[in-house]
Amino acid sequence: MTSTLETSNLTIRFGGHVAVNKVSCTFRPGELTAIVGPNGAGKTTYFNLISGQLRASEGRVLFDGTDLTKQSAPQRTRAGLGRAFQLTNLFPNLSVAENVRLAVQAHRGVHYDMLRPWMVRRDLIERADAILDSVALSSRRDVAATALSHGDQRKLEVALMMALEPKVFMFDEPTAGMSVDEVPVVLDLISKLKQDSSKIILLVEHKMDVVRSLADRIIVLHNGQLVADGKPEEVIASPIVQEAYLGIAPGRSAA
């Protein structure tokens, strides 16, 4: 049971505002945990604390038995934490293929090679193309990332994380703003990932039907605090969720 991800008493304050408040939680391989909560609950901030974009005011992040709390974002990525951002975060003027190729390059540890032309590394290009194929973006490979539709940008965002082949996948509302026909590609991808029992998957998602179909476990954040944690049916049925979360975004597929 070494390769778990654990946060203990994880806390961050912005001035007087406590955005994430003493969150202790353990995530295990082979488990998809949905993180839900109203807007501003601290879900994205929690992710930022785990993947290193923000440093904790208190508490610790442990992964694979090592303490990551003091490590930088690049170090945590190399340790196996992968992140797809809520606000699309790409290399806007580089091509779609180049965006993914860079992620593959990072993952393969090709960081400071300055003596060979990049095209010589066919393996990186081919791997990037395979990943683009898996998110149905092959036809757009030579377009600048900024020229993609919103939905395609979300898919590219996910593709960058896939290219890193992480041990922990952190999806932050991967389907937000996507059109109905684009959503299944991403959901299929997540389902496929779930079949690999060595992966830890964290999914922030507002759509309750998505959560219900994918999650093995749900945790609820509210005002920065962990207020519920358990099996999907139990958590969804609990009064605190009904009030704090579903009250705001009623699940239309409740039946």
Partner: peptide, 15 residues
């Protein structure tokens, strides 16, 4: 990549 989006380059694991 750094010129385009340094934050993202870091998130990919580049120091």
């Amino acid at each position: 990549a750094i010129r385009e989006n340094r934050f993202r380059a870091e998130a990919l694991g580049f120091r």
